[in-house]
Design a protein around this nucleic acid. Structure first.
Lengths: 138, 138
DNA sequence: AAGTCTAACAACTGATAGTTGTGTTTTATT
DNA sequence: AATAAAACACAACTATCAGTTGTTAGACTT
């Protein structure tokens, strides 16, 4: 039948999804849970092996907290191959103020998330600020 | 089963399609031919009775000579208040319980990035690990 | 009033979105 | 360096639905 030349589009969108997901440091499972489907299905979206409905894409954009338009804009700029390299920094960050955390930053973020106590969290931030000041003024 | 709450989105997109199509003064048949499907299927898109894939929407946007984002623009701005989220705020994370990096985490991450010294970075991580262990074993 | 153009709707079917199950790789921990 | 576990890949199955065809009806020419 009509052989999809549009797989391409789904593929590009899929790559975008993966990029943004990773930039948030969440797993396929996590994303899947947020939108209420199996993580295997998320895989298919990312691989571009199934079509993504507009509504689904909307859900995903909400789950990843980005505007839905990012999945469509400048799709050709996306570097096709290199996604999982640890220090990967996309030509432009998927959204303005964020760049993909590298591996160390990832572990840091994950650890930080494990801390539930607000006071402790604030304390850590304070400490970080202190450290930076110290580093700067020498 | 999962009853689509997202019909809504397809519906809104459908309305947009119809609006734009009519604004060009072309028939369903014309549009259908341009993208190579039956006009009845175009009907369904416009009615929102079937889901529109992202790739299809791309085709439609090309056929109607508009940027694909227009189908979402208004849709996005129009708060989908009616569906579930009571305190929904467009710019913010829809899932408060689970974390996409919240504001605090973001500032933390940014601070962490400012620290160049590897040793210091590792030290901080070690410290966090310690804190967590401590928290867990009480 | 017959022909053409447009659109709505129903019924059918092949394709596929989404599932579950299992295996593999990567990351974290001791 | 061994082990556990999290994260991912892939295959096979199934229920759903995207897309088809067929019919009907208004609207507008001629």
């Amino acid at each position: 039948m009509l052989r999809r030349k549009n797989q391409l589009i789904d593929k590009q969108i899929g790559i975008k999804i993966r990029q943004i997901r990773k930039s948030w440091g969440i797993s396929q499972i996590e994303l899947a849970e947020r939108i209420g489907i199996s993580f295997q299905q998320v895989q298919k979206y990312e691989k571009g092996s199934t079509r993504i409905s507009a509504s689904r894409l909307m859900q995903i954009s909400e789950a990843l907290n980005v505007k839905i338009t990012v999945f469509f804009e400048e799709t050709e700029k996306i570097p096709i191959v290199s996604d999982l390299s640890p220090g990967y920094i996309p030509g432009e960050a998927p959204f303005e103020n964020i760049q993909s955390p590298d591996k160390e930053e990832m572990t840091m973020l994950k650890l930080f998330r494990k801390i539930k106590n607000r006071k402790v969290r604030e304390g850590i931030i304070k400490q970080l600020q202190g450290l930076i000041e110290l580093e700067n003024q020498k």
